Computed example of a mutant assay.
Amino acid sequence: MIVRILTEGQYEVPDSLVDHLNQLDNAVLASLDSGHEEEFRVSLNALLGAVRTGGEPVAHDYLGPSDATLPYADATVEEVRALLKPDGLIPG
């Protein structure tokens, strides 16, 4: 799976990490629903950190599509809501 972090780049994430990313995605969604800004920041940073540490950066000249697009770390709640798809930020 190719995951793009806005303003940062793309990462190739192994299939073995997708379930964990979906758990972290669910935490982001729950924090958005609850309206807790601090929980939102913690869960978003955990999701981004998991992509950065578990994925491999994709070459800058790669022109293929991303399977998921994540916000940058300082994104607002409104910016994250704009990126949401029916199944969250991470497909599946």
Rank of each mutant, 00 (worst) to 15 (best):
1 M>G: 01
2 I>M: 11
2 I>Y: 14
2 I>K: 15
3 V>A: 04
3 V>N: 06
4 R>A: 15
5 I>D: 03
5 I>L: 01
6 L>N: 13
7 T>D: 14
7 T>Q: 14
8 E>H: 12
8 E>R: 14
9 G>H: 03
10 Q>V: 15
10 Q>G: 08
11 Y>F: 15
11 Y>G: 02
11 Y>W: 15
12 E>R: 15
12 E>A: 13
12 E>V: 12
13 V>Y: 00
13 V>G: 02
14 P>C: 13
14 P>N: 14
15 D>G: 10
15 D>L: 10
16 S>G: 12
18 V>L: 13
18 V>N: 05
19 D>N: 10
19 D>S: 13
22 N>E: 12
23 Q>I: 08
24 L>H: 04
24 L>E: 06
24 L>P: 02
25 D>M: 05
26 N>L: 09
27 A>F: 12
28 V>G: 06
28 V>W: 10
28 V>H: 07
29 L>V: 12
30 A>P: 05
30 A>L: 10
30 A>C: 06
31 S>E: 07
31 S>P: 04
33 D>G: 04
33 D>S: 06
33 D>M: 04
33 D>Q: 11
34 S>C: 02
34 S>F: 00
35 G>W: 04
35 G>R: 07
35 G>I: 04
37 E>Q: 10
37 E>R: 09
39 E>M: 05
40 F>K: 03
40 F>R: 07
40 F>Y: 15
41 R>M: 06
41 R>D: 09
42 V>Y: 01
42 V>K: 07
43 S>N: 13
43 S>K: 01
44 L>A: 02
44 L>R: 07
45 N>E: 11
47 L>T: 02
48 L>N: 09
48 L>T: 11
48 L>C: 09
49 G>L: 05
49 G>A: 12
50 A>T: 14
50 A>G: 09
50 A>Q: 13
51 V>H: 01
51 V>F: 00
51 V>D: 00
51 V>N: 03
53 T>N: 10
54 G>C: 05
55 G>D: 00
56 E>G: 03
56 E>F: 02
57 P>N: 09
58 V>D: 07
58 V>F: 03
58 V>G: 04
59 A>I: 07
59 A>D: 12
59 A>Y: 06
60 H>L: 11
60 H>A: 11
61 D>Y: 13
62 Y>N: 13
63 L>N: 06
63 L>W: 08
63 L>A: 05
64 G>T: 05
64 G>L: 00
65 P>E: 14
65 P>S: 14
66 S>V: 13
67 D>M: 07
67 D>P: 07
69 T>S: 09
69 T>G: 07
69 T>H: 03
70 L>K: 10
70 L>P: 09
70 L>D: 11
70 L>Q: 10
71 P>N: 11
71 P>D: 13
71 P>W: 14
71 P>T: 14
71 P>V: 15
73 A>L: 02
73 A>V: 01
74 D>C: 03
74 D>W: 08
75 A>H: 08
76 T>K: 08
76 T>P: 06
77 V>N: 08
79 E>G: 08
79 E>C: 10
81 R>G: 08
81 R>A: 11
81 R>Q: 14
82 A>I: 01
83 L>V: 04
83 L>E: 03
83 L>R: 13
83 L>I: 06
84 L>N: 00
85 K>E: 15
86 P>A: 04
87 D>P: 00
87 D>Y: 12
87 D>L: 12
88 G>T: 08
88 G>E: 06
88 G>C: 03
89 L>Y: 07
89 L>D: 11
89 L>I: 03
89 L>M: 02
